[in-house]
């Protein structure tokens, strides 16, 4: 009746379906729905979906006997055991601060922006190489997809270097933040399960640098920049072995 003066908006329909409406407003919407069967049908569909979705997850709203222990044990867990998680949290903070650009909650902390590439590389190694179940996002079985995907995110065609002559085979790769933009982390493994990571990130300038070593605890990193990309190989291996791997990478990243 008073449609023109008091139109029912799309938002009103959702609020009505979700039961978030004052009584007066709800009456107004009901009047509208009586005159607009299409809207009424949509609201009815949302309501039945709401009920179905609620039913779907309602069985999970339970406590389990181990819950109290879960909270207590975690609080008391030895510091050493928690370190990888803390490191993971640090990477998450970094990703949150830089990768999404969504204006994230300040409680998540400030983004780390000035971390040198070798430090980012050794941290990525420390986190992901020790992951047993989920070291990579995409496994080597889908190598073509992996390099195409990472290359696209990186904005540069890449290859996964063949390190077989050094005794390492590709495990897979994942997307990681490098200097606040998408970078690629490739992981390799030798027969004994010892792992190496190769981090690739974009650099602001197209400069070229020599190979440079850096140590971070037990993790050695060898890094260089070449043609707009920064490369860093990290592992808990000797500098000589790392050097051999970096040579292989460097040669295979050269344009033919």
């Amino acid at each position: 009746m008073s449609d023109a003066l008091n139109p029912v908006t799309e938002n009103d329909l959702h609020a009505y379906a979700d039961g978030h409406m004052a009584v007066d407003d709800a009456a107004r919407v009901e009047t509208w729905l009586a005159e607009h069967p299409e809207d009424a049908a949509r609201v009815a569909a949302w309501r039945s979906q709401n009920a179905a979705i609620r039913d779907m997850f309602a069985p999970y709203a339970t406590t389990r006997p181990e819950d109290a222990a879960l909270l207590a044990v975690q609080a008391r867990r030895p510091i050493l055991e928690r370190l990888p998680l803390r490191a993971a949290a640090a990477v998450l903070l970094f990703a949150l601060g830089t990768a999404t650009g969504l204006g994230l909650p300040s409680l998540l902390g400030a983004p780390a922006t000035a971390t040198p590439i070798f430090k980012q590389a050794s941290e990525a190694y420390a986190i992901y190489a020790r992951e047993v179940r989920h070291p990579v996002e995409v496994w080597a079985g889908e190598k073509d997809h992996l390099v195409a995907w990472l290359g696209k995110r990186l904005g540069e065609k890449i290859v996964a270097p063949d390190l077989a002559s050094a005794g390492y085979t590709l495990v897979g790769g994942r997307l990681v933040p490098v200097d606040g933009v998408a970078g690629a982390l490739l992981m390799y493994e030798d027969k004994s399960g010892k792992r190496l990571t190769l981090l690739l990130g974009r650099t602001a300038k197209k400069n070229e640098t020599a190979f440079q070593f850096a140590s971070n605890g037990a993790v050695e990193t060898l890094y260089w920049m070449d043609n707009g990309l920064a490369y860093a190989v990290s592992g808990e291996i000797s500098r000589e072995a790392l050097r051999a791997v970096a040579d292989l990478c460097y040669r295979q990243f050269q344009p033919a």
Binding site: M56, Y60, R64, D67, A68, L71
Partner: peptide, 15 residues
């Protein structure tokens, strides 16, 4: 926190 466990568990599963 323990009181929140059921709804947290349900929310985690719904995501």
């Amino acid at each position: 926190m323990l009181d929140l466990m059921p709804s947290l568990r349900r929310y985690a599963r719904s995501l």
